[in-house]
Amino acid sequence: MTGLRIEERPDRLVVTLDRPEKRNAIDADLIGELHAVCAELEANPRLLLLTGGAEGIFAGGADIAQLRERGRLDALAAINQAAFARIRALPMPTVAAVDGPALGGGAELAYACDLRVCTDRAVFGQPEVRLGILAGAGATYRLPALIGEARAKELLFTGRRVDAEEALRIGLVNRVVAEPAELLATAHALLDEIAKGSALALRLTKLAVDSPPAAHPQLDLLSQAVLFEDEEKHRRMTEFLERRRSR
């Protein structure tokens, strides 16, 4: 891969955007590589940490030179949207570690992850209307779900940028670190906490949370029925009871 660097760990994949000369702009080749990452994580489910490689930049958005030449058929092909939707639907939890600007498609890529950790110099924004288009890769529905409809509309209508402090206050990110050097360690620590849970319970919890309201409570009941018969559930509960008895 040329636009991504990938580190494989036993329980997770660390994927780093690696187009520093283009401020990690998201082009068609990078989208193809993200699809390949998704295919790997669908076949072999693990946690995902997604970050930007160039210091002080997550992703400056879509590649404007490519975007300018796209026509209506390209829009209908959902080039970026399909890849981000696939990231959103990955079986196991995902974390975006954001340092510096995450703008346009870069912000939408971060929204596609389940959780977000950023540095205090991170900036999120949707400038699409100022370029004559809309935020068509997920922001129109993921952003309202994250921060509420009124706040999302303000950001989508104005293109105003949100700094790290505001992002934390409005629920756009889960953690903010003061030093860029702490970013990946903080993201990994969050994933370490997640990894303490049962893999099957994590998968079914994510599936339940991401499902439409009409799927509940039936989906929850069915998922719990599956987990109640899982050997991992029995082992974990037995260990819990033994620890409590030994105190």
Rank of each mutant, 00 (worst) to 15 (best):
K153S: 00
R243K: 15
P144A: 05
E108W: 02
L47Q: 03
A167V: 02
P45I: 05
A137R: 11
G171D: 13
A167M: 01
T238I: 12
E33L: 05
P213G: 08
L76F: 11
M92D: 01
E69Q: 10
G106D: 12
Q224A: 09
L227E: 02
P127W: 06
P144M: 03
E239W: 15
A137F: 06
P91R: 11
G56E: 09
V98F: 02
M1K: 03
E33Y: 12
E239N: 13
P10M: 01
I31P: 10
V162I: 02
L109H: 09
R151Y: 05
A225G: 14
D120V: 14
A187W: 10
A59K: 08
D210K: 08
M237Y: 12
V14I: 13
R244Q: 10
I170L: 15
L41E: 02
R68P: 03
G3L: 10
V176D: 07
A28V: 12
P212V: 09
A122Q: 03
R86W: 13
T94Q: 06
V123T: 07
P217V: 04
L207A: 14
L156D: 00
I147L: 13
L146C: 15
L131D: 01
V226S: 05
H234M: 13
L200Q: 06
L241K: 15
I26N: 06
C38W: 09
L146Q: 15
R243Q: 15
T205R: 15
L241Y: 15
L76N: 11
C38S: 04
R130V: 09
A137K: 07
A54F: 08
K196W: 01
G60I: 03
A150N: 14
D220A: 00
P10F: 07
L143F: 13
N174F: 11
L204I: 12
I26H: 01
L67A: 08
A62S: 06
A185V: 03
L155Y: 06
R130K: 06
L17E: 03
E7H: 14
A39C: 06
G159C: 04
K22W: 07
L156W: 09
